[in-house]
Simulated assay, not measured.
Amino acid sequence: MVSSGRPWGNTGVPGIYVVLLYDLLVAMDLDAPALLEGLGISRDELLAPDRRVSMALAQTVAERGLAMAGDRGLGFRYARAMSITLHGPVGLLALSSASAQDALDAACRFLGLRAPFLVIDYARHGEMAHLKLKSTVPLGVAHDFIMEAMLVGLAFMVEQLLDAPPEGLEIRRRSPPPAYWREMEADIRVPVLFDQQEEALVFPQSAMAARPRLADPQVAALAREQCEMEFRQWRTEEDGVLAERVRTTLQDHTAPMPSLEAMAERLSVSARTLKRHLQQAGLSYRQLQDEERYRQAKRLLGNRRNSISEVAYSLGYNDVANFSRAFKRWSGVTPRGFRERDSAG
């Protein structure tokens, strides 16, 4: 069983990325079947085109892979094994875009479809562009593996798009040089700087005008249409998932209910992001708070040893009349009417 308490939540990760890790462990002569042991899923099932796994499961797999590979540069090896075509329509859109800037814009917009735990912050500093990777949730012991794989993978993708990395392209890592770095350095045609202030790909802004070698407007239009369809479906699912996480978290709270800002911090998102996702799901944080208060009120009123005033105070109301008005708004009857109806039933 995978613990539901993992910080990554429930938003899905494409199963093909787990398959890639599995096959990489096979190539490293490691016990790849142990990667999926007890998780209720097989490699063949993960090959299905639309198959996704929970991020909790993905984190478990990443941690197991790291434990098996030890100090052998799993992130670099994973990036080296990752082809741009592995990303489906997102990769196809990047390959067929009219310019490197268009490909980058597509990556920024659609990254959540492939790595829902990361965002790209694109900024210019003088003549240089900085493509910064930031995690939206705690990544635990898999953090360095993921950043390593993503940044080196992005550098390899630039090379696949343009045949050669642009002059001045470099990778910046916050972490110190790992022990395996010297062994991997020769396989990467891009300088990697450690002990930096950011996790980023840095390159001359002028490189954004370069034309990918497989640029094709018809293919790009079809790939974008596929990406947009998948994006709409993903956002709808993500909004619902976040709303359920709020409901679950509120169930652990009696009065006072956490504020929107406190809840956002608890879920490792910004208050603005939480509010937006709830709105897109047709909800508000106030609605979810009231929903939980109503659930708790019914439970407390069901115990007749609790007076109505005690129930009101336990839910954070300083005035019984305010509680009675709120309860009538939720249920259509007053707390006293609810008890009388409950007794009659």
Rank of each mutant, 00 (worst) to 15 (best):
P7M: 06
N10C: 10
P14D: 12
L21H: 00
Y22T: 03
L24N: 01
L24Y: 00
D31P: 08
A34I: 09
L39H: 07
G40H: 10
S42H: 06
R43M: 03
D50W: 04
S54C: 08
M55F: 06
L57F: 02
G70T: 02
G73K: 01
L74T: 05
F76Y: 14
R77M: 11
A81C: 11
A81I: 04
S83G: 12
T85L: 07
L95S: 15
L104W: 03
A107V: 09
R109K: 15
L111V: 14
G112F: 04
P116W: 03
F117C: 12
Y122R: 14
A129W: 00
L133G: 15
S135Y: 06
V137T: 11
P138W: 05
V141L: 14
D144R: 07
I146M: 10
I146K: 04
I146F: 07
M147W: 00
E148T: 15
M150R: 02
V152R: 10
G153A: 10
F156V: 14
V158L: 15
E159R: 15
D163L: 11
E167T: 12
R172Q: 15
R173P: 02
S175A: 13
S175E: 12
P177W: 06
W181A: 01
M184K: 09
E185T: 06
A186S: 12
I188Y: 05
I188P: 01
P191G: 01
L193E: 12
S206A: 15
S206L: 13
R211E: 13
P212T: 10
A215W: 02
D216A: 08
A220R: 08
A221I: 08
A221M: 07
L222C: 12
C227Y: 07
M229K: 08
E230V: 04
Q233W: 08
E237I: 02
G240R: 05
V241P: 00
V241S: 10
V241F: 09
R247Q: 04
R247C: 04
T248V: 10
L250W: 07
L250E: 08
P258I: 03
M263I: 06
A264I: 11
E265N: 12
V269K: 03
A271W: 07
T273P: 06
K275G: 08
H277D: 01
L283G: 01
L288T: 08
R293G: 03
A297W: 08
L301C: 09
R305V: 14
I308W: 05
E310C: 12
D319P: 07
R325Y: 13
A326C: 13
F327Y: 11
K328M: 13
W330Y: 14
S331E: 06
V333F: 05
G337K: 05
R339T: 10
D342A: 14
D342G: 06
